[in-house]
Simulated assay, not measured.
Amino acid sequence: MEQAVADMQGDLVKVRQSYAEITATQRRLMKQKEQAEELAEDWKKRAQLALEKGNEELAREALSRRQQQVDSADSTQSQISSQKENIDNLYVSMQELESRILEAKSKKDEMVARARTAQSTQKVNDMLTGVTGKTSMDAFSRMEEKVDMLEAAAEVSSEMGSTPLLKGSSRGVEDEFKLLEAGSAVDDELEKMKNLLAPSSGPKGPKEVDDELEQMKKDAGL
């Protein structure tokens, strides 16, 4: 686009130069025509003066010179008329070229502005777009939802910690079963020790006593 505008501006400079040169030539021809017409008028007056003085030969010469100037003026007028059409066409072309340059500049400025706007929009979108393709605003929304859930869970936990357990609740039942299981284990151990200490049907030998002692140590965790 920049090069196209530069080329048209270069063409416009050339057209203006040509227009200036042709216009200058046209003005010079018009001045020559005016001079020829003035000389023709002067020779006409001289011819009249010569006739008044009775010098017909001199009057004839004056009229001959007048005709030369008239012919020169007519020839110059033909050149002026011929160049006038060229000047008019060149002027129209120059105006059209100027209009095209202005239009091209306007389009160029518009395209530059659109390109800058597109680049700015793309940068903003890139900043808002995450790696997964979702916008950062979506990520913030998901984070906010998680925070809300954590806050709600913390609030429920706090309420449960400050409220006494009701009888028959799931936590109370578990605690009661643990107490029962612990008591049952103690009772079983006590019963086992009673059985070991109770007299058997016959006297025990040293080996049996040693075995029972080892068993008691194991049961006691020694």
Rank of each mutant, 00 (worst) to 15 (best):
E2D: 13
Q3K: 15
A4F: 05
V5H: 01
D7M: 07
M8K: 15
Q9R: 14
G10I: 03
D11T: 09
D11K: 15
L12K: 14
S18H: 11
S18F: 05
A20C: 00
I22G: 04
T23D: 11
R27M: 13
E37D: 15
E37T: 14
E38G: 03
L39M: 14
L39D: 12
E41C: 01
W43S: 02
K44S: 10
R46I: 05
A47W: 05
Q48V: 08
Q48F: 08
L51K: 05
K53Y: 06
E57D: 05
R66G: 10
V70T: 14
S72P: 00
T76A: 10
T76I: 03
Q77E: 15
Q79N: 11
S81L: 13
Q83K: 13
D88P: 00
V92W: 06
S99F: 06
R100L: 12
L102C: 03
E103M: 10
K105P: 01
K108H: 09
A113D: 12
A113G: 02
R114E: 14
R116Y: 02
Q122L: 13
K123E: 15
N125Y: 01
T129M: 02
S136P: 00
M137T: 07
D138M: 10
S141L: 06
S141F: 09
S141G: 08
R142A: 03
R142W: 07
K146S: 08
K146M: 02
K146C: 04
M149Q: 13
M149G: 03
A152G: 04
V156K: 15
S157E: 14
M160C: 14
S162I: 02
T163K: 09
T163P: 00
K167T: 03
S170M: 07
E174A: 15
D175G: 01
D175T: 04
L180W: 03
G183K: 10
S184N: 06
A185Y: 02
D188Q: 09
K192C: 07
L196I: 15
S201N: 11
P206A: 05
P206L: 11
K207V: 10
E208L: 08
V209K: 13
D210E: 12
D210V: 03
E212K: 12
L213T: 08
E214M: 11
M216K: 08
K217I: 04
A220C: 11
G221F: 02
L222I: 14
